[in-house]
Simulated assay, not measured.
Amino acid sequence: MTTTVRIATPDEVPILNAIRTSVRENHMTLEQMADYGITPEVIANLLRTTGRAFIANVDGVDAGISIADSAEGNIFAMFVLPDYEGLGLGRLLLAHAEAFLHATGVASAWLEAGAGPGIRAHGFYAHLGWQSDGLMPDGQLRFVKSRAALTQIVAGG
């Protein structure tokens, strides 16, 4: 198995959206994302300005994504295709997003994980050092991590 991670370009927003809308947990359609103001144009603009997206490729298949926004200091998205879960892609993609935020000098980072009991992402983030910070108004669980605790890998640019 060969795994690579690349920085996504604004032209690759369709790949980001295809992976985002293919997950089982915290699934959303493009229409549901648009209802939250998350459109292809918004994501492309984020990548042109304060954001960076990473795409994990396994043996020629784009299998997972992470997106971080330095202006907000958050991990905006982190998703892996169901057939590629359990291969360490989530950990790898999160490390790249954390390293990007660390390199931009954010004081602390935050992310939200789906609402409801039994969400696997909650345990995943806690295991990787993210601290629960209560519920967001939409019911999602907020996690935080200090700049010092963020992964500091070389994220390929």
Score class of each variant (00 low, 15 high):
91 R>N: 13
105 G>A: 10
21 T>W: 00
65 I>C: 07
86 G>L: 08
1 M>R: 07
80 V>E: 01
21 T>V: 15
95 A>S: 13
139 G>S: 11
41 E>D: 13
78 M>W: 00
40 P>D: 13
118 G>M: 08
98 E>S: 09
31 E>T: 11
59 D>V: 02
46 L>F: 02
17 N>I: 09
54 F>Q: 03
44 A>F: 02
27 H>P: 03
130 W>I: 12
14 P>G: 05
5 V>K: 10
79 F>K: 15
82 P>Y: 09
54 F>E: 01
34 A>Y: 08
80 V>A: 11
157 G>W: 01
109 A>Q: 00
107 A>L: 12
6 R>D: 12
30 L>N: 09
37 G>T: 04
75 I>K: 01
59 D>K: 03
56 A>M: 12
67 I>H: 00
102 H>V: 02
120 R>H: 14
110 W>A: 10
111 L>V: 04
23 V>G: 03
154 V>L: 07
45 N>R: 14
66 S>F: 00
115 A>N: 05
115 A>F: 11
137 P>A: 12
57 N>V: 15
9 T>N: 05
131 Q>I: 13
54 F>N: 03
67 I>N: 00
128 L>F: 14
22 S>H: 09
156 G>M: 09
81 L>F: 08
93 L>Y: 00
7 I>A: 05
26 N>F: 11
126 A>E: 15
96 H>S: 12
72 E>S: 10
35 D>M: 09
64 G>A: 15
107 A>M: 06
116 G>P: 04
55 I>Y: 02
18 A>P: 02
147 R>W: 05
127 H>C: 03
126 A>T: 14
117 P>F: 04
134 G>D: 06
81 L>I: 06
27 H>N: 14
124 F>A: 15
15 I>S: 08
69 D>N: 13
33 M>I: 03
137 P>L: 11
125 Y>T: 12
20 R>S: 10
121 A>H: 01
7 I>E: 03
138 D>S: 12
91 R>M: 11
120 R>C: 04
74 N>V: 09
30 L>Y: 00
84 Y>K: 09
75 I>L: 10
70 S>C: 04
120 R>D: 14
26 N>L: 06
67 I>R: 00
157 G>L: 04
103 A>N: 03
153 I>M: 15
83 D>M: 06
100 F>C: 06
126 A>N: 03
85 E>R: 14
22 S>L: 02
47 L>C: 09
